[in-house]
Structure formats: structure tokens, C-alpha cells
Simulated assay, not measured.
Amino acid sequence: MANNVKVILIGGSPMIGKTTLATELALKYRYNCISTDDIGEIVQTIIDINPMKDFDYREYYIKNSVEKLIKETLKYHKEIWKPIKHLIEIHSEWSNPIIIEGWALYPKLLRNIDKSNIKCLWLIAGENVLEKRILDKKEFYKGASNKEKMISNYLKRSKWHNKKIYDEVVELDDDYIMIDKDLTKEELVDKAMQLLSGNSE
């Protein structure tokens, strides 16, 4: 990896492999590692921003329209962006190297941050990958009162998010890894390390 990289940011939709990749890279490079989900949990102890607070998480996806799920996702991510940005800045300036992963990261939010020692990696889902991931994770929707609707709404929101990230990545010409159904964990880590070393071939 390039010696001056102090912050690695890994963004992408839920269930796409961000946490797996971040954990593997943190072990290889001996970096600290945190998720934007964890940052959100901390913020929630101070500010009432959790859209699911009055729901069983499964019922949240069943009872709300896809449009509302998207609107509340954007609102929630906006609320936690300031502490995320602060964490990026302090680790890029003086604190220990860190990997920050999460779906609250967006390419356009990062375009005004000095990236001289920050590296962004974006995971983009190929066709049918998100659907396969959620269907395979049976414990996630087990016990839902309407399993089909929960999966459908969750999947539609994830596909919206995946497209948003992809569109922003293409517009800004950022590095990304296409996650297809045949990509193994080892191949994902290898691709990420190539990008971090400056070799995208």
C-alpha cells in the first residue's frame, strides 16, 4: 500500500462485503477499524435520530413504503455525517491509521475533503448480488410477519443505494470493485490491495 495512506474508506450497500473487507485489510495493515453504523449508534445516545426506534426492525421494512425508507436513510446518514467527517479528518491529520467502512459514506460527500492521505474504495453490486445476499441471510428476515414484503422493500432500497453510489463513483472517477456472484473473499481482498497499492490492473 502507498506509504502515506492513513485513512481507508470503504463504502457500498448493505450486505455487500464492506465489513469483511475492512476486517481483513485492518489485520493485514494493522490499522484500526470502525463502522459508520457504530458511529451512528453513539450519536443516537445524544440525538433522537433512529428511524427504527419504535419498530421491530423487520416490521420497519414491512410497514413503510420504499420511498419513505429511502428518505429516512438519507436523513439518518446526513445526521451522522458530521462526526464521520470529523473522525476522517483527525485520523488523516494526527491520529492512528484507520479503516472506516459503512453505507453512510458517499463519494460526493468526500469530494471536498483533502484526499492526499485518504483512499476510498467503493463496492458496487453486480446484477442479482444484493438479492442473493439477502435471501441467503435467513436469520435476517426470520420471524417477519410478511417475509416477502420485507425482502422486497429492503431489496428495493438497497438497489437504489447501490445505483446512487455507482452513479457518484462514475461521475467522480473514483476507484470501485464490482462485486459479482463469483467473487470470493480472497479475490475481493486482493483487488482492494491492488487498488491501495496504486495498481488497478
Rank of each mutant, 00 (worst) to 15 (best):
Y141E: 04
K147Q: 15
G143H: 11
Y166Q: 11
Y154I: 07
I134E: 08
L196K: 00
L195E: 00
K156G: 05
L130W: 03
D136T: 12
Y166V: 01
F140H: 11
Y166C: 12
Y154S: 13
K147E: 15
E187N: 07
E127C: 06
K132T: 13
V169T: 09
I118F: 09
Y141D: 08
W160D: 03
I124R: 05
S152N: 14
E187L: 01
D180K: 07
M150I: 01
N153K: 02
Y166L: 12
I118W: 09
T184W: 00
L130Y: 02
V170P: 05
K191N: 09
G143D: 15
K185R: 12
K138F: 06
D174E: 15
S116M: 00
G198N: 01
I179A: 03
I134R: 07
D114H: 07
N199F: 12
L188K: 05
S158K: 09
V129C: 01
K164L: 15
V170E: 13
K119S: 11
S116Q: 08
D175N: 15
I165L: 14
I177H: 10
K115H: 14
K137L: 13
I134Y: 06
L183T: 00
D175Y: 13
S152Q: 14
E186D: 11
W122Y: 10
E127P: 06
N162K: 07
T184I: 00
D182R: 13
K119A: 14
L183G: 02
R133A: 15
L135Y: 12
I165N: 09
K119W: 05
A144E: 08
V169D: 04
W160N: 02
I151A: 06
E139G: 11
Y154Q: 13
D167G: 05
L195H: 11
S197F: 04
D167R: 10
L123W: 07
S200A: 14
K159Y: 06
K149Y: 01
Y141H: 12
D182V: 01
K147N: 09
